[in-house]
Design a protein around this nucleic acid. Sequence first.
RNA 1: GGGCGCAUAGCUCAGCGGUAGAGCACUACGUUGACAUCGUAGUGGCCGUAGGUUCGAUCCCUGCUGCGCCCACCA
Length: 877
Amino acid sequence: MLEKNFNPKSFEKDFSFTLEASYRNENAEPFMVLLPPPNVTGSLHVGHALCYTLQDIMVRYKRLKGYDVLFQPGVDHAGIVTQLLVEKQLYEKGVEKGSLKREELLQEIWLWKESSGGTIIEQMKVLGISCDFSRLRFTLDDGSQKAVRRLFVKLYNDGLLYRGERMVNWDPLIRSAISDLEVVEKEVSAKIWYLKYKLENSDEFICVATTRPETLFGDVAIAVNSRDHRYADLIGKKVLIPLLNKPVPIIADDYADPEKGTGAVKITPAHDFNDFEVGKRHGLPVVNILNERAELKGEIPEQFQNLDRFKAREAVVAQLEAEGLLEKVEAITHKVPFGDRSGAMLEPRITHQWFIDAAKLAIPAVKAVAENKIAFIPKHWENLFFEWMKNIEPWCISRQIWWGHRIPAWYGPDEKIFVAENAEEALQKAIAFYGKTDVELIQDNDVLDTWYSSGMWPFITLDWPGNSAEFSKFYSHMIVVTGFDIIFFWIARMIMMGIYATGDVPFDKVYIHALVRDEKGQKMSKSRGNVIDPLELCDTYGADALRYTLASLASPGRDIKMGKQTVEIGRNFLTKLWNAVRFAQMNNCAHCPRDFDVNTVKHPMAQWMVQKIKDMVVDVENSMENYRFDEVARHIYQCVWNSFCDWYMEFIKPILQSESEITGSSDAVASTKKEIRDVTSWAIAQFIQILYPIAPFMAQKLCRELGILNLSWPNADTITLDSRDSVEKIDRLQSIISAVRSLRKFLGIAPAEKLEAKIETANNAFRQLCDESNEILLRMAGISAVQKLDSHSIPVVVEDAVVHLGFEGKIDIQSEKKRLTSEMEKLLKNRDDVVNRLNNKDFLQKAAPDIVQEHQKRLDNLNDKINKINHIIRNLV
RNA sequence: GGGCGCAUAGCUCAGCGGUAGAGCACUACGUUGACAUCGUAGUGGCCGUAGGUUCGAUCCCUGCUGCGCCCACCA
C-alpha cells in the first residue's frame, strides 16, 4: 500500500538509470538525441533542467515505443572558462598567473578535472536524465583529440584553414584572441574628447572627436569626406599628432561622415576595425602602440610608456589640456565591446591567428537547411540561422591559452608550416621538404577554440573517423535540443563541420527550447540574485514534479516565466495521481488481470472511461510527435484529474463499496463490480505508462508497487470498443449533477441536506441510466429520485430532461425567478445570433453544409430549452 | 538602420475561420477513509488598435502602438 503522504524524496533516489539507459533494441528504428555537452566547470541551472528534461521525455517515449535509442552524454573541456577558473584557484593559493610552465598548468587543470569536473553529470542523474552514461565522452579524450587533428589536417589540405595576420578581437585579460561571437556589446557612459591637431607649417588646427584619445600615438592620418566643403582645401596637407609632433596626412575617404563628430576623424589602423580598412585602402602604415595587456608600448613619449590604457587616457587628456590642445569634452553613452568570459573591454589587435574559411563551409550548410534536410523547431529560428550564415566572417579558431586542443601545426626554422596529425608525421614532412634529417620543429603554442571540438560533437561521439555501427545507424538522423543563443556558436558549426567531414548533415532536427526567466520575466543571473537552483526544487518538490512542470510550460515561441512555487503545478498533479492509486489499492483495483480485454467492457461508466483513455493516448502521442510537451502534460492532466478522479472515481464508489461480493446476492452486481475493478486497474496502468516519459521516478515507483513488470507505450488502435452511447449517457448524467449542484448552491441548500427529485425525460436509454444511478445521484448531487413529489418543487432544465427538485422549507421564489430570467436573456440573445445567421442567404449558400446543420440543431436545442424555462417561470408561484 | 517574436480573465499562459479555455489568485460553501498538495459552486474577457479579405475574424492579410530579443553601426 502506498504511504498516505506523497513524498517523492522517499523513492526518487531508489531508481538508477544506467541499466535501462544503455539498453539498445538494435533491430529497431534508430532514435538519437545528442546531448549538448555541458562545460566541465558547469553546474545544473534551470535552463539545463529544461533542456535535458525535454530530451529525456523524447528519449523515454521512444524507448517505450520500441525504438533503438541512443542518448549520448558528454562533457566539454570549455577552454577559457576552465583555465581561468583553475588559474584563479591557483592564484588564491599564491601561484601567480603565468608562473607555471605549460605542462605544469595543464597537469593542475587535469587534476582539477578529475576531482571536481563534471559534477553536472551527477546532477543530471538526480533529475532522472537517462543518458547512456557508459558512453560518456569528453571533448579532450583521446578519441576527440584524434578526430580534431584529423579534421584540422583535412581542412588545411583543402585550403579551408589558414594562418594569417588579421585584426581580431583581443581580450587583454585572458591575453588571447576571441571569436566575434564571444564579444558582447555593452552600453556605457563615456566621454568624447575634441582634440586639436595642428596643421603642419601653420598655426591652424583641425579638430577631431574621439572616445579613445590614448590611441593618438598610433594615428597615421586624418580622414575627411571629399564632399565635405569644410575640409576640401586641407586634403593632402599634413597635421602633427599632438604630444608626438609627428606629421601625418589628411586624406579623403568616404568613411569620414560629415554628420558625425567634427567630420574629421583620426585614423588608427592598429586599434580600430574601420581604421584598419581605411589604412589598407590608402596604403598607410600600421602603428601598434598597445601590448598584449593593453598597456602603451612603442614609439611614444617616455612618460606614457607601460601605462595601462585607462590610466594612459587620463594622462594623455591631462597633457593635451595642459598644452591647450583640448577643445572640449562631452559626455555620451555608447556601446563598447567586452569579452563575455573575462568581462574585460576588448581591443582590436593585429596578430597571427588561424582561421577557417567559414563562408565556403556555409554554402552546403545553408543548402541543407533550405532544402529541409534539417528542420528547425519552431521553424522561424531558421531565419536567424540564415541571417548569420549569409554574413559569416572567417572564424578565428586559435586561442592563446593552453587548456584545449593544441594546434597540430609545426614550424620549421624558416617559419615554414607543417600541418600533421602528430609530431612524427610533421617531422617526416619537414624532412621531405628540407631534404635533411636533422630538422628542428616547434609546435604552435596556441590551442583551438572550444567550439571547434564542440562543432564536431555529433561525429566525435560516434567515434569518427572510425566507421562504427553507431555512426552508420544514427549519424544524420538525430535531434539536437538547445537554446537559441547557441545557434551560431554550436548548431551552425556542427552543420558546417558535419557536412564537410562526413558528406552528410549531422542531424535532421533542431529543437530550440525557451529561455527560463524568473517570475517577473527577468533573465536569471547571479548578479541579480534571482537564480533558481533546480536541485533545490527537486529536493522540495521532487524531480518528477519539476520535470512535469517544465514540460507543461514548454509552449513554443514563448519564454518561460518561473518562480519556485511554479513547481507546485507538477507536485499537486502527482499528488493527485498518487492518491488515486491509493484509492484503487484500497478497493482492490491495483492489479489488472493479464487476460483482461477492455473491448469486452459493458458498464456505461467503464466504457466512458475507456474512451477517455483512448482519446488521451491518441492526443498525447500526436503531441509527442509534434514536440508539444505542454500539450502532452495537459492531456494527461485532464484525463487523470478531470475525467478519472473527478467523475469516474466518484461514479464507481457505490459499485466498489457495495456488499454484493460478500452476500453474493446478485451475480450481475458482482460481475459489474469485477469489471469496474479491472477497468480501474487497467486505467491506472495506462496512466503509468503514459506518464513514464515525464515522471519516470513516480512511474517506476508505481510499477513496483503494483507489480507491473514491463512498460510499453499503449496502442490506441487496439481499443475498438464502440462507446458512443455510453459516453453520451454519462455526459448527460454529469450535466444533471452539475446543474443540480449549481442550483442547490444558488438556493443556499446545505450540502448535507438531501432533496427529493423527479427526473423527467423522453429518452428511454437515459431514463434507464438514471434509474440505475440512484446512489450516484445521492452522493454527487444530494438528491434521491422519487416517482412523485409531495413537496414544493423547482424544475431544472438539462438538455431534454427536466429535474424537479423538491423542497420542504421555503425557497426564495423571487430570486430563483430572477436567476431564470437572466438565464433566459442569455438564451434569447444566443438564439438571436443563431437565427440571424440562419436567415442569411449567403451563409446558407456558402458555409459548409455541416456547419449549417449544426446551427439548425443548435437552434432547436435553444428553442426547446427556452420553452421549458418559459413554462417554469410562468408556473413559479 | 535590418530582422524576429509577443500582445487573450487580476497573474501565468493554451486555443481556434463558426457559442472564448486552463492553472493560479479571488468569493461562498464543505473535512469520520483516495486526496486541504483537496472537493463543490461561482466572480471575472469589445481576444492591443485601425483597416482589409470572408456569409462569418480573437484566429488570415496590411498599417499602427506597446513590450522583448537578435544583427549591424556609433568620431
